[in-house]
């Protein structure tokens, strides 16, 4: 028990607007008890994802309990994997990329995280969405 920091959530979309909107939904529905960062768009401001920006988002949402990343399409996942590989080794095992829809997954993962759940539990809740 006690107030320990909750698992952080990172939202990675090809679109800055989607990322921002998904983060807005998490904030409004779940509140501010979960570290949250959202990134979208490539370095030129177009649609795409940027490894450096994802690294920055992981840093921003970092929690000793770990970070769960929610992604949209293919490149978001591969670039997120690359971003994880660029993180310090002791952090890598505490970062997971969830196999879940971006918006619903982010809200569900954040809800689970807000109750102080472990990284495994947060990921399981997000991925439960894929179970039909």
């Amino acid at each position: 028990m006690g107030e320990q920091k909750n698992v952080g959530i990172v939202i990675v979309s090809h679109s800055a607007k989607v990322a921002e909107g998904a983060a807005d939904m998490v904030r409004q529905m779940v509140g501010d008890s979960v570290p949250l960062a959202a990134v979208g768009g490539n370095a030129d401001g177009g649609l795409g994802t940027d490894v450096g920006a994802i690294v920055g988002a992981i840093d921003k949402a970092w929690s000793e309990q770990g970070v769960a990343i929610l992604v949209d399409l293919g490149g978001a996942e591969t670039n997120s994997e690359m971003a994880v590989e660029m993180m310090p080794e002791e952090r890598r095992e505490r970062i997971v990329i969830c196999n879940a829809p971006l918006v619903e997954g982010a809200v569900m993962a954040a809800t689970e995280a807000s109750g102080g759940s472990s990284l495994d539990a947060v990921r399981a809740t997000a991925e439960e969405l894929m179970g039909g």
Partner: peptide, 14 residues
Amino acid sequence: HARPSVKLTQLAKR
């Protein structure tokens, strides 16, 4: 609905 569901879950988890 969605938001009430989140609130109920957060409360139950306590």
